[in-house]
Design a protein around this nucleic acid. Structure first.
Ligand SMILES: [Mn+2]
Ligand SMILES: [Mn+2]
Ligand SMILES: [Mn+2]
Ligand SMILES: [Mn+2]
Lengths: 219, 219
DNA sequence: AATTAAATTTAGACAAATCTAAAAATAATA
DNA sequence: TATTATTTTTAGATTTGTCTAAATTTAATT
């Protein structure tokens, strides 16, 4: 069976919203997709008929195994294309989301596999999010917020909490990116700023807001 | 202004059909787009309203300057993506058309320019068709059919008349591709087969059908 | 020139995806 | 529990692109 771009966007949105264990509500979906609740209801009936999800009126929605598989395929394409755009074509990470939002709907199965191979089977996208493999499996990132990292433990930046241009600008200026190794030397309770040190550089402090936007894993 | 995938496909189809000087007819378009004449009429009215073409009922259609510019942009994307698929991702040239048919509608202007630069600003796609540059200009190929090439003139394969798997299979077997240099040694009137010679190889004959499917330019 | 044939356009209907406004169900609060 | 407030669904329209069947125009033949 094949699905329209609209249907695929709904499936992906549900996938991202159902990370908890509660069902996804009509209003949540409407907000995520910048559409109206009435439109969501219409589409949910359609996607239920296609067996991509379980849905009963007034009770929210959850993807079926089928739906989850479809969602993972779309997420795989989205993140592979993001990797391509940044790694191969030198886009900034704040520029790639909207383009990938289109590219993720290109249907060729062969294209995805060839692209994956060309890129060297990357495990994470430019924002540190895991890329599902061709079977839908992806690395489970147990990264923690930088604000919670213990003192003097060397850790590697593995993800960001936002993909905004503003964050990218700041990170560029401080020479921090995915993969940067650092350790926390002090935490200041006055403003919750923290002092970090990157190898071969002098220690410097970063704001609470920035620390909360960074995820790290210990190495 | 932005255009739907359907509108873009119409514009591109008209562009390809209007190479002569006559207007493009409704039926020609319907055949090209695998749709019905009535649908074409509806769409032509819409595209006329958007000033992409001139159209009067019963008189056929022709692209405006606007329309031509749009068409060249789509053709540029189509051929750049085909080049990418063959050159970077190692697709066979018979596999790329349908994928490029989708990729040509990705809207990001920046993506096209970065892709073009990454590929090294190629001038021709894998089938020997010229790739328009960012201003819509493209090399005017004055290649001739191999069947019409004079004896003992060294020429370079510059295009194919078909993109079928069958042709590709045959050309692979004979080690002929775009860029191959060859000369015609004899022409046989019995079956119109021709004997060709590729540098450092023994001469061999190819059929009339194959010769007619190959375009060359003298070097 | 009259007739037939072919091409093209209109008329009317349909499916997909969306919207607004009103109704119905559920949740929250007094 | 009764009353509000919120969420969700239905009802009815709208837009885009498509189709079939019938009407119209143009082209080709007698
Ligand atoms: Mn999308
Ligand atoms: Mn991402
Ligand atoms: Mn297309
Ligand atoms: Mn081509």
């Amino acid at each position: 069976m094949s699905f329209s771009i609209t249907e695929e966007n709904y499936i992906k949105a549900i996938f991202h919203l159902q990370q908890g264990d509660e069902n996804v509500s009509t209003n949540e979906l409407a907000a995520e997709l910048h559409t109206k609740a009435a439109s969501v209801t219409d589409m949910l009936k359609k996607l239920k008929a296609k067996k991509l999800l379980s849905y009963e009126r007034y009770k929210g929605v959850r993807l079926s195994a089928e739906g989850k598989k479809l969602a993972l395929g779309i997420v795989r394409k989205h993140r592979l294309w993001e990797f391509f755009l940044v790694d191969t074509l030198q886009f900034g990470w704040d520029e790639v989301h909207d383009v990938a939002e289109e590219l993720e709907h290109i249907s060729s199965k062969k294209l995805v596999e060839k692209l994956d191979a060309f890129l060297g089977h990357p495990k994470f996208d430019p924002h540190g999010d895991p890329i599902p493999d061709s079977h839908g499996k992806m690395a489970v990132q147990q990264h923690i917020n930088l604000i919670d990292l213990a003192l003097n433990k060397i850790a590697e930046v593995s993800g960001v909490g936002s993909q905004s241009t503003e964050l990218l600008e700041l990170l560029k200026h401080k020479h921090i990116g995915i993969g940067t190794k650092l350790e926390v030397k002090r935490k200041f309770s006055f403003d919750h700023s923290i002092e970090i040190k990157i190898k071969n550089q002098n220690a410097f402090t970063i704001s609470q807001q920035l620390a909360q936007a960074l995820f790290v894993k210990t190495v």
